[in-house]
Amino acid sequence: MTGFLLRRAGHALTVILLVCTATFMLVHLAPGGPAVLADPKLSVEERTAIEERLGLDRPVLAQYGLWLARVARGDLGRSFLYEVPNLRAIGERLPNTALLAGTSLFLSVLLAVPLGLWSAAHRGGWVDRVVSGAAFVAMAVPTFWLAIGAIFTFAIALPLFPAGGATAAGGSGGVLGRLYHLAMPAVVLAAVTTAELLRYMRSSAQTARQQPFIRVARAKGVRDAAIQWRHVLRTALIPVVTVLGIQIPRLVGGAAITETVFAWPGLGRLGIQAALGRDYPLVMAITLFISAAVVIVNLAIDLAYLWIDPRIRMDQR
């Protein structure tokens, strides 16, 4: 177990380093350069002073070396766009992203798992047909379209929900205010995830139902509900949990669009604006942060397999 964990930690560090190197090169290769230098009104003198202050006058490789050295000391640098330490910029946005992504993932699992199980057990039934249809629509419609559509329907035509923001403009509004503002973005963000999870759940439950041990259980006279929940569900969850792990970075990335349209102050939007503004230090800090999160979540998921499926043992891996 310890060997396994050490090996995985080594892999994780390598992956993170590769991702960071690639991102660093990509953002520096992208045309245009930092938005703080894009103002055509800057004089040559001002432009030079900004480049010197931000360290942009050095060669890219030297900048990368400096960045690595700083990260090794735990210093993620300062944002060009906002003049704040990146760690603070991320810290301010993280709770909002966690709330939005967490809620939407929770909604997705809550809906997809039972509906997928039911659909697999009652293939071709009306639930299966309605749910599958809805899933295909949710997957086909682009998120920004769904978001704008939701705003026009549920904030303007039927003014049930706020059109944007995480709280009321004047202040906090408490927990209920948060929930009220969370509802539309969370549902929109959950739509695609739910649809995909549902498709996986349905097909994986179907495969599980054909396993020999299910027939054995049935032959032993185990009740249908018990077969469903104890045997089918646990077996079927393996591929679904894998997909769930892949959803984590997608929720942050996909959330960027939802966050932008709903003016939700999250990390994805911060990342998009950092990339558009070529805020190199902030892009790098967010990349490092998200890649670390993905690696850790995937490690956790590998460990979860052990708990979910008794057939999987460490020595087999």
């Binding site: 704008i148 705003i151 026009f152 904030a155 303007i156 003014p159 706020p162 059109a163 944007g164 923001g165 403009a169 004047g170 932008t260 349209v261 709903f262 003016a263 102050p265 939007r269 604006q273």
Partner: peptide
């Protein structure tokens, strides 16, 4: 009493918020 600057990055979202009275 107050002036409130809301951060709304998308122009279409700004218009939507205006129409929604926000």
């Amino acid at each position: 009493d107050q002036v409130i600057f809301r951060i709304v990055p998308d122009v279409n979202a700004q218009v939507a918020q205006l129409l929604a009275g926000e």
